[in-house]
Write a protein that binds this DNA or RNA. Sequence first.
DNA 1: TTTAGTCTGGCAACCGTTTGCAAGGGAGGA
DNA 2: TCCTCCCTTGCAAACGGTTGCCAGACTAAA
Lengths: 320, 320
Amino acid sequence: MTATIKDVARVCGVHVSTVSRTFSAPHLVNPTTRSRVLAAADDLGYRPNRAARALTTGRTFNMGLIVADIANPFFPPLIKAAQAQARGRDYHVFVADTDEDPRVEEELIRTLTKQVDGVLLCSPRLSNKMIERLAEDVPFVVVNRRIKGMAAVLMNVAQGARLALEHLAGLGHRRIALVSGPIGSWTSNEMQGVAADATGLDLVFFGPNQPTEAGGLAVAADVAACGATAVLAYNDLVALGVIEGLSAMEIGVPDQISVIGFDDILPGRLNRPKLTTVAMPAVAAGRMAVDLLLQSGGEGATVTLDTALIVRESTGRAQT
Amino acid sequence: MTATIKDVARVCGVHVSTVSRTFSAPHLVNPTTRSRVLAAADDLGYRPNRAARALTTGRTFNMGLIVADIANPFFPPLIKAAQAQARGRDYHVFVADTDEDPRVEEELIRTLTKQVDGVLLCSPRLSNKMIERLAEDVPFVVVNRRIKGMAAVLMNVAQGARLALEHLAGLGHRRIALVSGPIGSWTSNEMQGVAADATGLDLVFFGPNQPTEAGGLAVAADVAACGATAVLAYNDLVALGVIEGLSAMEIGVPDQISVIGFDDILPGRLNRPKLTTVAMPAVAAGRMAVDLLLQSGGEGATVTLDTALIVRESTGRAQT
DNA sequence: TTTAGTCTGGCAACCGTTTGCAAGGGAGGA
DNA sequence: TCCTCCCTTGCAAACGGTTGCCAGACTAAA
């Protein structure tokens, strides 16, 4: 057993409340006493029990972070950043993966509720209604989803999509394949919104698709068949899958078809050809989400972070 | 405020202890009463407060998972698997990233201690001595590290290294560069142990190196200069960095130099050329570590998981 | 009808901390 | 010298549960 507040109190002959105050309200205890307590605590290796503390204060100094798929390379940098930011604020982070299953997501939130001061929901699969209901029990900050009255960190996907389309248009592409993601994805909707507004371009939509390499691979043949000279993919994984599929058909990227992804994940940077992509500010988003949660407690504020087009090797002039 | 055990008790006119037992020892309460309690609980949306429960029982149903770098693609599948396994056992997982800093690692463990039933330490950077000391306060399961008397999940790196060297030898390679990882890494030591025993091969060592693409990139020129026709790298990231560096020098892989990595991470599978690698059983390790923690509570058992050589495109016959 | 045993549920202490309240002591002002 | 006021500390209740112990109500055996 590790030392408790009582042990410390006994050792230096004061009441437990004095020990408690030494840690949580130092100004209320005499400097002499304080240093005696501190010395004894150090001696015994005492650390306040956060769970017990939470019981009375109502603050756990824990937060939850829920993502659909930890193994999707988009998330680890975000998780890492959130976790580091939280640690700097003396918070611990429960990380949970829902396997893309809304029911798991709901159950996870429910069981986490009492144990955390708030939850970061990254690209949740739950309905708005359900999220709003759950928000009565625990503060949320949602990432890449807009829910009225709820704190959110958004990535400017529309801006990125616009930049990507302009880039392609500038290279002479006219017929462009839009390979979207899972149904109901906010990101996917944003992209399609921009695409719908694009004038002078001939867009052909493919979707919904799995947000993975397999999803891209599966749709590659259709993309090739539709006569597009360029592809804007839901994310880098899908883009890489498309490239994989195209090269299996002996179609060169970017010589015959240009491909742009979203996210800027590591595999894209290492790929041959190196993937042109819209970089998503995952690290900033992770940090910001934590700050928002701690400041606003899930109320109101919406932060939109810029995206940026990173031109690498998977895009080139349209073949004429 | 969410409902507590008292609310439930009041609503159905029983004592709190009866409600408590309904959940934690159902056989001790009359079926009729039980269903009344259950109905009331369901009605009020009551969920036991796990933190409060932990206070008396000493079991938190939480565990910690500490890795050096979440963003290293080797870890996410392991984290995901551990987390899923834990969820199946009704456990929640704190995931923390130490940024490769032993002091952060120690502090993290200390603050986590009271809040978890055990901690999974993945490729820890702490000294054995320190880990043993910390183990007095909280059960550990270490992954890819051997510490006497402590539960461990090991990946058979030696086996993998042997397979890799045999594969290279079979392709006619004689002079092979061994690009190791960070100093003190268990994996690195295992590899070097095997290499030292290899007969008939001419091995040249490079290290220590950062376990990242940058580490590989930095060492590529030296590797090329040493006259080796093949490289065995600490992990896939390093291998990819080496390939990157070599191709910047117009040295073809596998035509001029063969490269093998370790881990089998996604970027390696997507790379051109597709990376030949020793697959590490990350998913199995994550699952196994959780089971070991829950079963043995950190005592004794050591599990060694097989590795496998996956031959893809980055290895070929030695040029003669 | 008595007796012993089994079920069931209440009581109260306890887990480790926090915090409002009050009391004691010393200092300063009148 | 007495009265206030502030500083410091102790006391005890509370947070949301769990659990050993006990007592009452039944049941069944004698």
